[in-house]
């Protein structure tokens, strides 16, 4: 279980963040002006939380790669990189939205 969590956790965070960002962006489009700022802050907060979580996963996996398991360093390294990638992707996809608002 732990293996899959560290391998896919970061990317799953990315997916969750994507969905949330999509929902919030849609809400912003149909809501009145005074609701837009709080929604934007919500997304900003969410983005920060997801990025931090992904980075935490990456660090954890990187540490684990120093005590390799049966499958060697492969899985922990892969997990570390996957989570790092997810963190970058999360920033990347919320940038256009946060930039504009």
């Amino acid at each position: 279980m732990n293996t899959w969590l560290s391998l896919l956790g970061g990317l799953a965070l990315w997916a969750a963040h994507f969905l949330a960002a999509y929902a919030i962006a849609s809400l912003v489009d149909i809501s009145s002006y005074e609701h837009q700022a709080p929604l934007t802050w919500l997304l900003a907060g969410l983005t920060l939380a997801c990025v931090l979580a992904a980075v935490a996963l990456a660090v954890r996996a990187w540490r684990a790669s120093r005590r390799p398991g049966l499958g060697g360093v492969f899985v922990p390294r892969l997990s570390a990189l996957a989570s790092t990638l997810a963190a970058i992707a999360i920033v990347w996809q919320s940038a256009p939205f946060l930039w504009r608002h």
Partner: peptide, 30 residues
């Protein structure tokens, strides 16, 4: 793995010409 996830984040790029809300277009394009 990355393809498996990220390819789900792009469905709306086939609908750029349908007048989607502006902000979501930015996201999908990214």
């Amino acid at each position: 793995l990355a393809t498996g996830f990220i390819s789900f984040g792009v469905w709306a790029h086939h609908m750029f010409t349908t007048g989607l809300p502006g902000v979501s277009v930015g996201m999908f394009s990214a």
